[in-house]
Amino acid sequence: MDVTFKKENDIAIVYIKGRIDAISAPEFEKRIDGMISEGNSTFVLDLSELEYISSAGLRSILVLAKRLKSENGKIVFSGLKGPVAEVFKISGFYSIFNVFADEKEALKNM
């Protein structure tokens, strides 16, 4: 898993590449949690280069989203494809999160 990050107009855009599995999920959660603690409250998670996510990763996303919600923050997703889109669908994440086709579309709707 590889996490990179940029900031645009107070929005944190985070690119997650590779795999979020039971081994890398804690690291993923820690990275984003750290960004929240540093004062970021609006996030676009771009998953266009995420190839794999298991329930451990979705669990981390729920933990982070609940924290952001309680602190009046916001998290949206972009670029999901293949198996990542499939597990989001199965988990009902499309009904609790805003999911956009790509980063540009997400930023337009923030």
Binding site: S55, R59, L62, A65, K66, K69, I90, S91
Partner: peptide, 20 residues
């Protein structure tokens, strides 16, 4: 099975693995 129709606030952490 987890309740996949619950809101973010109601969603329980975990329980998705077997469902997957």
């Amino acid at each position: 099975d987890p309740d996949v129709n619950a809101t973010l606030e109601e969603r329980k952490i975990g329980g998705l693995g077997v469902f997957f």
